[in-house]
Amino acid sequence: MGQLGFDFGVQPRRLTKVTPARLATFDDCPRRYRLSYLDRPTPQRTGPWAHSTLGAVVHNALRALFDLPPQRRSPERAAALVAEQWNDAGFADAEQAAQYRERAREWVASYVEHNDVSADPIGVERWVSAPVSPNDGPPSLIVEGRADRIDVRDGELVIVDYKTGKRAPDEYEARGSQALALYAVAAARTLRKPCYRVELHHLPTGTVAAADHTDDSLRRQLTRADETATELQTATDTLAAGADADEVFPARTGRRCAWCDFRPSCPEGQQAAPAARSWELLAP
């Protein structure tokens, strides 16, 4: 028996393999799911987004920081790692890119100064995977993904996710995050330690939003994941049987169409909202 009392000893014939990103994409817009994961060759996409570049740089700098011995994890070294990882993709111009490079250096240096980074995490950008079920029966899906950081505190695992967006997260966002919950379940199974605490670390504000799950709250997230996995697998099978792609994977339009990666390949999305500029989602 593992966390939540799941019985991993009996395997059904077919398990749907999902990641938090796949589930979120399908929930957000089935057509974007199809364009992202099913259509080959991959349809035309937009260019790079500055906020994605910024987030990747910060994540890569922190990953590189934890590759260093603890005594070398200083604010100054952390800031230097940002500069080493930097690129200008998606920014309006060189001036804007330079401004955000300096901001990112300050964010990461402040993070290292005000948080204990002396302990070695059990995982950095760690891939975790587990067969799971929302009930006590045999597994119905495999959840997997790459966690930003997994700490060990007092014998239990803690999932840490870095954020660089406009808005500071709170406890409710941490508790409601399906991705963090699924990482917790998969990490507990992969690393054979209990995992209930999840944390969102917002670099621009220094906010740490934390939540402590229970078996019941994790089970509810698994139930949601299982329902979505069933829907996307049914849609995938129906498409493979010859159904119309746009009917099986309809566009779910809204304001988010302005910054969708597949906007060039989706006429409905182009009509739903004007195109966002590649730097509009940057934290102020």
Results as ranks from 00 to 15, higher is better:
Arg32Val: 11
Glu125Leu: 07
Pro75Val: 02
Asn135His: 10
Cys257Ile: 03
Asp246Ile: 04
Ala24Ile: 13
Arg149Pro: 04
Gln270Val: 06
Asp212Leu: 11
Thr238Gly: 02
Ser118Glu: 04
Cys29Gln: 03
Val82His: 12
Asp161Glu: 09
Val185Asn: 01
Leu65Tyr: 09
Arg63Glu: 04
Tyr172Gly: 13
Ala229Trp: 00
Asp148Asn: 13
Leu62Val: 05
Thr207Phe: 10
Asp93Glu: 04
Glu247Ser: 06
Asn87Gln: 04
Gln221His: 14
Ala83Lys: 07
Ala98Met: 14
Gly176Ile: 13
Ala92Gly: 12
Arg146Phe: 00
Pro169Met: 02
Leu239Ser: 02
Asn87Thr: 12
Asp170Phe: 05
Pro169Phe: 09
Arg34His: 10
Ala258Met: 14
Glu231His: 11
Pro138Phe: 01
Ala211Met: 09
Glu125Arg: 09
Tyr100Met: 01
Leu200His: 05
Leu62Pro: 05
Lys193Phe: 13
Ala24Gly: 14
Ser133Val: 04
Gly176Arg: 15
Asp154Ile: 05
Asp148Pro: 01
Ala186Tyr: 04
Ala21Val: 10
His213Trp: 03
Ser110Arg: 09
Thr214Gly: 02
Thr207Met: 14
Arg220Tyr: 08
Leu191Cys: 08
Asp226His: 10
Leu68Asn: 06
Leu281Arg: 15
Phe249Ala: 00
Arg72Phe: 01
Arg220Ala: 13
Cys257Asp: 09
Leu191Val: 09
Ser265Val: 06
Asp116Asn: 13
Arg197Ala: 08
Gln11Met: 15
Pro48Thr: 12
Thr205Cys: 14
Asp237Ile: 11
Trp279Cys: 00
Leu68Asp: 06
Arg72Ser: 15
Arg14Trp: 15
Arg189Met: 02
Leu281Gly: 00
Glu247Asp: 07
Ala275Cys: 06
Pro48Gly: 01
Ala241Lys: 15
Arg219Gln: 02
Ala64Arg: 15
Ala147Lys: 03
Pro131Tyr: 02
Pro274Val: 03
Thr236Glu: 11
Ala119Trp: 08
Leu38Trp: 01
Ala94Lys: 11
Arg153Trp: 03
Ala275Ile: 11
Arg224Val: 13
Thr53Arg: 01
Trp107Arg: 08
Arg126Pro: 01
Thr42Trp: 01
Asp237Met: 11
Glu171Pro: 07
Gln3Ser: 13
Glu268Tyr: 00
Thr25Gln: 07
Asn135Tyr: 06
Pro204Lys: 03
Leu4Trp: 07
Glu231Ala: 10
Leu35Phe: 06
Ala89Ile: 03
Arg101Met: 11
Arg256Ser: 08
Ala240Val: 15
Gly90Tyr: 04
